[in-house]
């Protein structure tokens, strides 16, 4: 568990489970980790909480794409996808 981090203060801490995809996956076993963030923290707070490089990310929260500023809620399942293009 990564300890409380980021975002606007207010309300109890929330716990989210995070899966890092693509080239980020090697940062944790299976690319997965649990994070505790301050209540009211936005999705983008995960960048700092997980010490990720500054980059364009896509955040998928509970199966739907999310804007960076959306608030995290307790129990959210978040996927963080780093920039990719292929072909």
């Amino acid at each position: 568990m990564i300890e409380p981090h980021g975002g606007m203060a207010g309300g109890p801490a929330v716990h989210v489970s995070v899966t890092l995809k693509g080239s980020l996956a090697g940062r944790f076993p299976g690319g997965r980790t649990d994070v505790e963030v301050a209540g009211g923290a936005a999705v983008e707070a995960l960048i700092e909480a997980l010490d990720l490089p500054r980059s364009s990310y896509i955040f998928v929260v509970n199966g739907a794409t999310s804007v960076r500023g959306a608030p995290l809620r307790d129990g959210d399942r978040v996927q963080v996808i780093p920039p990719m293009a292929g072909g």
Partner: peptide, 29 residues
């Protein structure tokens, strides 16, 4: 052919003229 088609109505990096890779352009620096 991985790419065959018409130009978009806004300038885009050609690799990102699609909804998956293009999504990384939203809010980029």
């Amino acid at each position: 052919a991985g790419n065959l088609g018409s130009i978009p109505a806004i300038d885009l990096p050609s690799s990102h003229n699609c909804g998956d890779f293009g999504a990384f352009l939203v809010g980029a620096e």
